[in-house]
Amino acid sequence: MACIDKLNYEILYKGSFKDCANYIRKNFKNIVDKNAGEEIIEGIFLIGISPIPVAYEDNYIIFPYTKPCYGTYVIKICLDEFKKKDDKKGNKKSLLELIKFW
């Protein structure tokens, strides 16, 4: 998964997944419902309960982002950030490099 720390993001809200989904629905207009597990952009997967609201505003994407220890945040990222990341593709790891057996 792409490390979100490497991107310029803004945290708009923090709460449970349901609170974050409600926040997006209440505060944005251009919303697309997506399924859990969908890779919205290279390396970034939606985690939560479908339908997951993803908002698009100007050149920004707003979506709920979950980390196991820290919970869910509504984050806003400029889409240009992802274009920059796309340019750096070509570093894909094979299945066996991602999993290890003890």
Partner: peptide, 30 residues
């Protein structure tokens, strides 16, 4: 999340203590 479909997973068992773990469980199940 990206590669789990490549495996023949028969069942999922999750430990849930936080809201985020509810989200991960449902996502993996989906």
């Amino acid at each position: 999340l990206k590669i789990i479909k490549e495996f023949n997973i028969e069942k999922i068992i999750s430990f849930v203590n936080k809201d985020s773990e509810v989200s991960y469980t449902i996502t993996y199940k989906e």
